[in-house]
Design a protein around this nucleic acid. Structure first.
Lengths: 192, 192, 192, 192
DNA sequence: TATGAATGAGCGTTCATTCAT
DNA sequence: TATGAATGAACGCTCATTCAT
């Protein structure tokens, strides 16, 4: 009995998630409406909120999943050693993060958790991004005068800066990759 | 004749802006309602939208003005030479930028302009922040292996990172100032 | 389950309709404001637009209902045989139709449907008016050289003409009833 | 001096009228906005209302002019003698009157004047339409048992009925011309 | 759990008309 | 006369979220 109910629950949740993905596939994240999702999933609106606290919770899951897949990809290859290699490895992640202004803003908004209990998929991804980069840096020939934790935090800061400027026509003389490379060269390369 | 009419326009605009400031003074930016503003300004709703495209346009102006005042203050003192001095000089700006989550998010959203014609008050402020910092760095004893433009962009990136983490309870073990100081020490200090 | 929900819908709709009727009772159709209606019904504004596409849709229903009641009344009595009797039987309908300029104009605007799916309450009433008159004419001693359908259409045309002139001070030398009687005598009475 | 001012006045009025005609030419009557007209005329909004009491006053003039031109055309030919000839002669007028739902509704609304002083261009046109038809009927071989005034009023009533049904998809099985011919045959032809 | 009608605060808009200059 | 900023009263709409069944 218990199990049957759980199955139903899981199925409904899956229906909602794949319906949402389908909606996003055709119209993007920004345009997603709860109404569309429930219609596509063939369930009632109330059901949606029985499964997700709010719309943003769904968004966090969907965006988190995609971003995690990008990080899987980044981790799958041989660990990058140089700045260009690091940028190349992170390219899928950066590309997705700037695929829509809406996605980028939501990522920024949820990048930190206000409480340990609030660590959601996106905050987790930012943590993971940081860890992955840190591990790479430890194995690479980078400046050693500061901790690799700090270096990794800096990479994240510069990546966000570069992504932010991607939405900005004024600074488009330089490409995203070139800008990030300039940043990271200056940040990671030992001066000496 | 022409001038008299312009004066009226200027006065009405001023009434709207100061009414909005009063509303914000008591309730904050987030809680600002267009209806409140027009009521306080003693002006019709239609008039509001004749002066500002939408609520965000007003917000940009108000937030831009405040931020500009912070930058005025930063420029007024003797140019800071060291990392702690730079952080101290920027403190009012950073403090305002993180005074409300709403303000920070809006700043991020409008920090870049998609077209030259779209440069709004906030995009202008980000530009100015960058210029001010750059001038300071030129006159200070910082690393010289990279351009001061690049250094200034980095300062901005780290400041945003640090501000972003301010909203994040998880990372609050370290204070904003300490974190930013750590970042900037590593970024600006000549290693060698 | 399903039925319970439908009942709620029906009740809300009824609340809106009777609230609207109350508002009209005191201020007339022209002065009806959506906000007043929802306030009187104790219902949210969004609910109004979930039940009616727009204000006109509500108006169509309300005016249609009243007009239908007038036609009920017309059909309730013994079928009129003569022109004066027909005019008398239709008097409540005509009186309501010209009770407000606003009502008359709305009736004209919605008297025809641009598609079968668009047949609203008012278009239905015009159809019904026509049918009622046609049945009367069939049983009465009127000219037989043309079909009763045609005769009934003519009655409608003349009634509209007479009603239209009712709003017109220039033609008010003759009363509505007298004018319509003149028209219908000439239209319905067998010559010869 | 006086004359100079009058010239200016006349010129401004002419500019407004031709600007309005140009706007209507491209977008139709319904879509005409005062703002568009004054922009096209190169005058201020206030000037518009110095020349016309309200927007409808302008509309009356423009529509009245066009309708009058149609009636000029109707009177120019040899007076029609038969029902089909009458319908043919009035065709341009009827066609214009049903060119837009907005035009038709406005015509109905202004077809009668509430006071002698209020006889506007449209009320005048309806009067003229009536007179023209009456004169035709007097010279034609129509039923003589009722006055030609009454007959002409009836023609008008039937024409309006037929025009009204033109907007109505439900009755489009019969064409406008056929319907009006049926009406007028039954109304005008002596039964005997 | 599921349902779906109802909520509700507020935004943006409309646009003919007025009025001080 | 001409100007054009200001008016102002609704309307329509949005849409995530709640809650009684």
């Amino acid at each position: 009995m218990q199990k049957a109910i759980q199955n139903r629950t899981i199925k409904t949740r899956a229906k909602l998630l794949s319906a949402a993905e389908a909606v996003i596939q055709s119209d993007g994240y920004q345009a997603l409406r709860v109404e569309e999702v429930v219609k596509a999933a063939g369930v009632a609106k109330g059901t949606f909120f029985a499964h997700f606290n709010d719309k943003d919770a769904l968004m966090e899951i969907l965006i988190g999943e995609r971003l995690n897949a990008c990080l899987d990809q980044a981790e799958a290859g041989t660990p990058p050693k140089t700045v260009p290699e690091i940028i190349a490895a992170l390219e899928p992640a950066h590309s997705f993060m700037t695929s829509e202004r809406y996605v980028f803003d939501l990522l920024i908004r949820y990048s930190g958790a206000t409480a340990v209990a609030d660590i959601g998929p996106i905050a987790y991804c930012f943590e993971r991004y940081f860890r992955v980069v840190m591990l790479w840096l430890e194995a690479a020939d980078m400046r050693k005068d500061v901790s690799s934790e700090l270096l990794a935090e800096g990479v994240q800061a510069f990546a966000i800066q570069a992504m932010s400027l991607r939405f900005c026509a004024l600074h488009s003389a330089t490409t995203f990759t070139d800008r990030l490379e300039t940043y990271l060269d200056a940040w990671l390369t030992p001066t000496g």
